[in-house]
Amino acid sequence: MIAKLETDGQGGPTVRLFNGPPRPIEVSEEVPLEIHDLTVAYHKKPVLWGIDLSVPKGKLVGIVGPNGAGKSTLIKAVMGLVSLSSGWIKIFGLPYKTSRTRVGYVPQRESVDWDFPVNVMDVVLMGRYGHLGLIQRPTRADRDIARESLEKVKMLPFANRQIANLSGGQQQRVFLARALAQESDLYFMDEPFAGVDAATETAIVTLMQELKDRGKTLLVVHHDLPTARNYFDMLLLLNMRVVAFGPTEQVFTHDLLQATYGGRLTILSEVAHEVKQRAT
């Protein structure tokens, strides 16, 4: 190992190169997520290819692309859930391991077994686990935070309900509450709108706006193009590579979407039509 990351006595992170003296490194509060030359492959087939990305603070970013474009994989790569073939990822200027308490994660709803014997409160409390020590148990303060998070997604009345007895939208809200309980600065959400009712969708959008207004950064995998334009400040068009990344109004153009989706989506023509209409 040539470079080693550690913490000095004062709590600031330092880097040690070639066993030299520890040097402080720049912790960038302004760049919550920075990705350089990221390549991820499953069974030698690349899923993500040479991703370079620098997400500014306090933005609501939508990750958009066709099926198999590597949207979920990108999030998983950042969270360290898949191994990287090349490149590096920094969260607030630090490796994920060091700054993971600042990251909140909302996985896809299908990724867990909803028959699992836990109730809503248990799931939301799990959001606090990352802040607890190895054998520490959630304290009263943690429970209060969990309760507040539930209140924010209007699920407090369901706190003692077993999670199987919730509707899809309610389940998604529970996941959201768990992410809120993580009290993070950077949130990753994997298709939070998949299979939820209209009311929940609105609630989620409102919540995202609120989080953004409080200076949090959100990256949200989204697959519905027409709504993507209204929901997000910035869009990341992804199809194995970064096709485009920038403010929504600049990125949401016919050519770029065409480049992202290829010619294969019928929905594309509808959207393009809408884009044209708005332009004229």
Binding site: A41, K44, A259
Partner: peptide, 13 residues
């Protein structure tokens, strides 16, 4: 190298 792009990449713009 083990990793090779197998699909035609869309052009970066």
């Amino acid at each position: 190298p083990a990793v090779e792009p197998t699909v035609q990449m869309p052009q970066n713009s």
